[in-house]
């Protein structure tokens, strides 16, 4: 494995030296994507929108191990949450507390990169797909000339160009002027952000996640207004896939939390840590009673927990 990695790195480095970074990037990533998209388009009888969705499915299946690892990291973090709460109560010394927290995280097999890597991969793919779609869909005759230089010399591929740009109500090479797709993109991003919230220790991180939950959808809505619609189709499709991956990891309970995500209603209070149980028991039971008709939520609403901790820690700091 190490030898293969070494050879791959050496080949890429040589290509960068010979062709330059941009050309290597195109040769290795963008051009194969473009040609793959066109082959898929041909396979689905010239329905490029369907080809994008099919492509999304294949890419997400290929990166499924990363996605599952991300969810498993989140799941293990959630499992460790009661013990972490306990540690935070128990240890006043920050150093000692950090040590204990890390120890618990290690015991639960929590890997911070397990959360970050899938996002990095997804963003990379998003960027590459954006570039591929800009060339493939055209949007302008000039980009078709660029496309002609990127296609593999197979008549099968060339005969498919120019592609059918119409899919449902969309012109895939142009931004959606009906605003339906940008709204879908925003909502899909919001759902994904809600699903990817990880229980963290610090209120700053909670605040960041809270911010990202709203900022990311808004930014993507804004970007979608000027992006080719094909990219928006990819984004919505990939987020739907994420929901299914969530179901795979969390099972029915994970799926049960969907509608909390889809409809941002007040979330139930999490199960308190053993040490804190006596203090929070009454409130928790009250919440459980009021939420009888609501599916049980797997994840503790981490932001609320963190916010509560932040307040308590703030008070302690003030007392000092």
């Amino acid at each position: 494995m190490t030898l293969i990695s070494f050879i791959a790195i050496a080949v890429v480095a040589s290509m960068v030296l010979i062709y330059g970074f941009s050309n290597t990037f195109n040769l290795i990533l963008i051009n194969p994507l473009i040609n793959a998209l066109i082959v898929l388009d041909r396979l689905v009888f010239g329905e490029f929108g369907v080809a994008i969705i099919l492509f999304t499915l294949l890419v997400r299946l290929a990166t499924l191990p990363f996605t599952i690892r991300q969810f498993q990291s989140m799941k293990s973090m959630q499992a460790a949450q009661p013990r972490l709460e306990e540690v935070r109560k128990k240890f006043k010394d920050p150093r000692k507390r950090s040590e204990e927290e890390m120890k618990i995280m290690r015991e639960h097999g929590f890997n911070p990169l397990g959360c970050v890597m899938p996002m990095v991969i997804q963003f990379g793919l998003f960027f590459c797909l954006y570039r591929a779609l800009v060339f493939t869909m055209g949007g302008s005759p000039e980009s078709l000339i660029g496309l002609s230089q990127r296609l593999y010399p197979w008549s099968f591929i060339h005969e498919s160009v120019p592609l059918n740009q119409h899919f449902l109500w969309l012109n895939l090479g142009q931004p959606d002027t009906t605003f339906i797709l940008p709204i879908l993109v925003g909502y899909a991003t919001y759902v994904q952000q809600k699903l990817s919230i990880t229980p963290n220790a610090t209120p700053q991180q909670a605040q960041q996640q809270q911010m990202m939950t709203w900022m990311m959808p808004l930014i993507l809505v804004w970007i979608s207004l000027s992006l080719p619609s094909g990219v928006g189709v990819y984004w919505v499709a990939t987020n739907i896939f994420t929901l299914f991956a969530s179901y795979y990891v969390y099972g029915r309970r994970g799926l049960g939390s969907w509608w909390h995500v889809l409809l941002p209603l007040p979330t139930p209070t999490p199960a308190p840590a053993p040490a804190a149980r006596s203090q929070q028991q009454a409130a928790a039971e009250k919440n459980e009673q009021s939420d009888d008709d609501r599916p049980e939520r797997v994840t503790a609403p981490a932001s609320k927990v963190r916010a509560a901790h932040g307040k308590r820690r703030g008070k302690r700091k003030n007392r000092r």
């Binding site: 800009v134 949007g139 980009s143 090479g173 930014i219 804004w222």
Partner: peptide, 10 residues
Amino acid sequence: AAGCRRAASP
């Protein structure tokens, strides 16, 4: 986003 419009504009 900044590079989007230029890339797609005829």
